[in-house]
Design a protein around this nucleic acid. Structure first.
Lengths: 171, 171
DNA sequence: TGCCAACCGGGGCGAGCGTTCCGTATCGTC
DNA sequence: GACGATACGGAACGCTCGCCCCGGTTGGCA
């Protein structure tokens, strides 16, 4: 690979990182190219599609987060809650967190599996309500993460969800 | 107004009701026109803009729901929870519920005020956590309502939120 | 029944966006 | 220093969608 090509690839990824984090997947690709100081054609020389660029930018971060679900923890409930807390912290700062789940089916599956494992262990311990499925948790978190960017207080919203996940005071 | 004009107006509103409920505000206006058996121009003869059509279709339902927040109830917490339950029920069937809040600023304001009143009374009674604001509640509900259409179990998701709203078990 | 205003259908315009193409500039080698 | 491969920029394409316009049609009154 030529030196200028590698340099441009980095510039594109840097610009994409910043703009995806600010505006989510919706940001026009031309805007990314402009911020990187290149033409749209150059972006497509390095990434076959907008979605590929998005995945290249988010995959590392998100898979690292997913991997952190396997870290050992004493209490299953705390393990689950800590993970959800990490998701919320990340999403509060980077708007592309919730899009990453939507855009890439693989990432969605991986997150689903990771959350499913944590959830199951917490449910077996009896500290998290038993009628929640992994799908419920994924979609609820996605909705909640989006709410963070519409004026909601991140800490409060997260606490509501976490508190609501516990078994099992009936409303 | 001519008879056929009135008839077409009704056909457009019927089609819009159905498609907005199915697909939300995102449905193309041409699709509504096609379902109504008219051309797009005819839609614009009766409604100046797509948003106006959307409001004409949703406003009645939503304002009625908002008005129901003023119904008397013995327990402030139950009043709030019953209202949120009605929102969830409606949104589980009609996809345009969450869009209605977004598309029309007036409706959003009205909902904000109604929820704010219910919330405040429940907080004064000490049965709902005090650190939640009306804005938090609106955005959280919006996120949750959207989650209903992505595979989440409506009853479970609602229960999580309601249970989480209560004061004040810390996670 | 005939006329005119009201109304209709659908083709078309313009904007936004993802993607592609191509003439030109640049890198790295001989 | 020159040449060929590689990469670049940005104009252009195709598509979608909200919205408008115009030639033809239809309804209802005289």
């Amino acid at each position: 690979m030529r030196a200028d090509a590698a340099r441009n690839r980095e510039k594109v990824m840097d610009a994409a990182r910043e703009l995806f984090a600010e505006q989510g997947f919706e940001v026009p690709l031309d805007e990314i190219a402009a911020k990187a100081g290149v033409g749209p054609g150059t972006v497509y020389r390095h990434f076959p599609t907008k979605q590929a660029l998005f995945q290249a930018v988010t995959e590392t971060r998100v898979t690292a987060m997913i991997a952190s679900a396997s870290e050992p923890a004493e209490d299953p409930k705390q393990a689950l809650f800590a993970f959800l807390g990490r998701m919320a912290d990340e999403a509060a700062v980077k708007r592309d967190m919730s899009d990453a789940i939507t855009v890439s089916p693989e990432l969605r599956k991986a997150l689903h599996a990771a959350l499913g494992g944590l959830l199951e262990r917490a449910q077996e311990a009896g500290t998290v309500r038993a009628d929640v499925t992994a799908t419920d948790l994924v979609v609820l978190m996605k909705g909640m993460l989006q709410s963070l960017h519409e004026g909601g207080n991140p800490a409060v919203l997260l606490e509501i969800v976490l508190s609501g996940l516990q078994s099992s005071r009936k409303p």
